[in-house]
């Protein structure tokens, strides 16, 4: 069976390395922590978006992966791009949830802040992406125990077949206690890679 849709491009951020399709676009040799690594990557890739520094780590991860992938697609951002965003992970926004919990745990030292609290929702990273790339499109954030290619596949197909979107940006963006992993891919009518659960899983695992 040939697939109706294709994967146009994909981007991964893991192990201090950023890859776009087959090629490495940024790599940091030393074992720097996530904040240092992502900041170096931001500068190296000439991201030039100061709001980036207000984001929590999950949003930074998802934002940068998306920015790299969509820049490469050379979208005309003066016009509407109907690209749906469908992200998933295991830990939701738990790392920022812990940060907010810390601000309210002790009544003697109570300092909840809207700047932290707003990021205690996983879909905020999709909001950040939508603002940057002017995406007035369908978005949803799913939580799964593990990367779930089957569900992302079904859901992307549904959005494309119902003409809710022209393209769908899917993926896994996980940030949990210093472990991070981003794998995003753009589904379109055309492209060189068949859109099937098997190919999605293969791209995720390699």
């Amino acid at each position: 069976m040939t697939s109706k849709h294709h994967i146009l491009s994909y981007c991964k951020i893991r192990n201090n390395t950023i890859t776009l399709n087959e090629g490495v676009v940024f790599h940091e040799e030393d074992n720097s922590d996530f904040p240092t690594f992502i900041k170096s990557a931001y500068h190296h890739l000439e991201t030039a978006y100061p709001k980036f520094f207000k984001m929590d780590d999950l949003s930074k991860l998802a934002f940068l992966a998306t920015d790299i992938l969509l820049k490469n697609e050379q979208l005309d951002e003066q016009n509407d791009n109907n690209i749906a965003v469908v992200f998933s992970n295991r830990a939701s926004s738990l790392e920022t949830d812990r940060a907010h919990q810390k601000t309210i745990q002790n009544s003697e030292n109570y300092y909840p802040s809207p700047a932290i609290f707003v990021y205690t929702l996983p879909n905020i990273c999709i909001g950040e992406i939508s603002i940057k790339h002017k995406l007035y499109s369908e978005n949803s954030f799913f939580i799964f125990d593990n990367f779930n290619a089957d569900h992302l596949f079904d859901y992307a197909n549904s959005l494309l077949e119902d003409r809710k979107a022209d393209k769908v940006l899917c993926g896994w963006v996980e940030f949990d206690a210093n472990h991070y992993d981003a794998f995003i891919y753009l589904v379109d009518k055309n492209g060189s890679i068949e859109h099937t659960p098997q190919t999605i899983l293969k791209l995720y695992n390699t």
Binding site: P114, V118, I124, G127, H133, Y136, S137, E138, N139, S140
Partner: peptide, 11 residues
């Protein structure tokens, strides 16, 4: 049914 983003502000 449909769901669309404002592409405007996070909060």
């Amino acid at each position: 049914e449909a769901s669309c983003n404002d592409a405007n502000h996070i909060s």
